[in-house]
Every structure is written in C-alpha cells, then in structure tokens.
Design a binder for these strands. Structure first.
Lengths: 194, 194
DNA sequence: ACCTGAACACCGTTCAAGT
DNA sequence: ACCTGAACACCGTTCAAGT
C-alpha cells in the first residue's frame, strides 16, 4: 500500500492537476486500440512518475473504476432528466433514457474497456453511483408500469442486466453487431402486450 | 514459439493422455472461483511440466479457446437437433435451441471464464465452429420467418449478439441477475407481432 | 505534502537438457 | 517424439530518496 492521498483535505494545486492529467492519459490510452495499456504508459503520457499514479489511485482497477464512476454519474443525470419531464409518456421516458445511456457507452471506448476488462474492483469503486442508478430506474419503471405500458414481469433490477447485454453488443471485434438493434429488440420485449 | 505438436500425425498415447489431463485441469481451475489461474497451476494440477502445456497449446488463449471450440461444437449439435425435428413449430424450435445453449453456458463456468476474460485469440481458435453455427442458425431463422412467427427485422447474425448479451447476465458477481428472464425478454422481442 | 523512478514480485513463455 | 523445469521477460506495485 503506497502513500495514498488523503481524500478529506483539499488537494494541493499540482496534485489536482496531476490527477486530471492521469485520468486524461488513461482515457486516451484505454480508448486507443489496445496493445495492453500499462501503468507505466499512463504515467509517461500524463508526464508524471508511476508512483504518482499510485498515489492517486490505489491500483489499476481503481483507475478504471473512476471512469466507470464518472459514467454512472452521467447515467444518473440522464435518468433524472427523464424523471423531471413529468408530461412525457412514461414508457418513452424510460426508453429514451436507456437509448441515451447506451449511446454514451458506444461513444466511450475507454469506459467500455474498463467495464469489460476490469473485474470486481472496478464496480466496487462505483458502488454509490450504482445505488443511485437503481433508485432512479425504480421510479421510472414504476411510472411506466402504472401507465400499463411496461410488461408486469419486468423489474427495475433487470435494467443493469439488459444494459450490460446491450453493452456486450458494442464490440469493435464484431463490426456487424448493431447495439441499437439489440436495444430496440429488448425494448420491444419490455413493452406491455397481449 | 515452442516445439508445438504436429497436428497431422496421430499423437503418442502419453501425449494424448496429457492433453486430456491439461484440458481437465484447466476446466476445474477456470471454473473454481478465480484467484487468477496461472499456467503453472494448470501444469501442476495436470501433473505435467509447463512446457508440456505449451507443447499442446501455443499460449493461454489457445487453451481457453479450446474450451470455447468444444462448447460451440455442442451448440451446433443442439441447432442440428432442432433442425432435424421437421414437425416442430419453427419459432419454438429456434427458441428451444437458444434455451438449451444458454443453459449449457450457465452450467459451464470454465467456458464462461474463457468467453469473458479471453480476448480475440480465444474466438479465432473456434472460427470454424462459429461459421458452422452461423449456417445452422440461418436455416432456423429462415424457417421461423417463413412461418410468420419471427419479426422480419430479426436476422440470423443477431443471434450471437443477443446470446452474448444473455451470457453477460450469467455472472456470479451479480447474484440477482436471472439469465432465463433475460432470454425470455429477448424471445418476446423476437416474436412477430402487430 | 507530494513527486520520482529504480527495485521487487509475479506470471506468461521459452529452451537446453533429459527419456 | 515427447517431457521437464529453471531461466527469462514483462508489467503491476512499492518504497527510499528527493523537493
């Protein structure tokens, strides 16, 4: 265990700057078509020593986890926006939010890399944001059900599962795969029907 | 590059036996809840030297790839069975085959590990079986479409994509996730409707 | 208070020596 | 013809020395 930064007190200006440089370097490297990104690479591109990377992020998983955490932050904003629009059709509000979250993943190769090639620790790092996500999607699901537009067997807890499935379809190794098509299929399955 | 076995000539009896022991050891170790399986571990459990593992499989990806290859062999048997049953309802034939293949993945933690944590090379190893899979599923899809039971926008090439999504739901890290539920949702979406 | 980078540990892979 | 396992290379992580 290295000399991790104390998250309580405010960072010194150079530390705050380094943290940003590291995150930015990680994004660029994870997004660029891999030949396996190393911590040394991240440090070099950020213009800092490896030790500094470890001072900000206890290990590689935490570095990846930060990308996941930030993206869940965006997911939550998206769901909150959908909730705020009281007049909208409840099913379309949910569907639209899911389309937006999926599209944001499709645009973010770095976080996709973190999602798939990081393990348990990556998600542990984003636990708080993931809880918020569950809360927000429960409300959206409840509204759509109340409107009779969502099939009753569908639960809010199914959302991370199906979205994870849709994410699996965003895979540069399979250029034929169409995640939008996959998502529409799932939405079709979710819709209440005879 | 080590002294890879010549795949043309038949193996010596001890080599054939070792190959089986290595595969079996790999299965057991990949299936057991990870602390990262190493090639040395596989060799030790199989009772051979590491060099022997590399003699049979050029690298770790190839070892994982062999598990994937074998499972696709099973998938293809399943699809062939569904095709052979001419009297069956075409949509249910397809749906049943997908349920069987998914269930076999749910029972096989080792191959799931290979699917998710292996990279490009793992699938390259199984290319031939995957082509056969595409061919078989095209026929099943064509029949279900001809019967008017499958929505016209669904293509045979979508099957690996959606099954990959279902596989993502079979994840011990998320005990709440229900892959059967996910698959039924997708099947519901696939079905022809108004 | 934070940074640096050489050193360490771990694990995939090879290869010289064996039967 | 096939096997063995010590040795090598690579990469995640640490820590003693710096500012």
């Amino acid at each position: 265990m290295s000399e991790l930064l104390n998250p309580e007190r405010p960072m010194r200006a150079d530390a705050r700057r380094n943290r940003l440089l590291i995150l930015q370097a990680a994004c660029e490297l994870f997004a660029s078509d891999r030949p396996e990104v190393q911590m040394d690479d991240v440090a070099r591109r950020a213009g800092v020593g490896v030790g500094t990377v470890y001072r900000h992020f206890p290990d590689k998983q935490a570095l990846m986890g930060e990308l996941v955490r930030e993206r869940f932050g965006f997911f939550n904003e998206t769901l909150a926006d959908a909730l705020a629009d009281e007049g909208a059709d409840p099913f379309e509000a949910l569907a639209g939010a899911l389309r937006t979250t999926a599209a944001s993943m499709a645009d973010d190769a770095a976080t996709r890399f973190a999602f798939t090639s990081g393990g348990e620790g990556v998600f542990a790092h984003a636990a708080e944001e993931m809880d918020a996500f569950t809360g927000l999607s429960s409300t959206l699901v409840a509204r759509a059900k109340a409107a009779g537009e969502l099939m009753p067997e569908f639960e809010a807890e199914d959302i991370p599962m199906v979205m994870c499935g849709v994410c699996a379809a965003i895979d540069k190794r399979h250029p034929g795969w169409d995640w939008r098509h996959h998502l529409e299929l799932v939405l079709r399955g979710m819709r209440a029907g005879p």
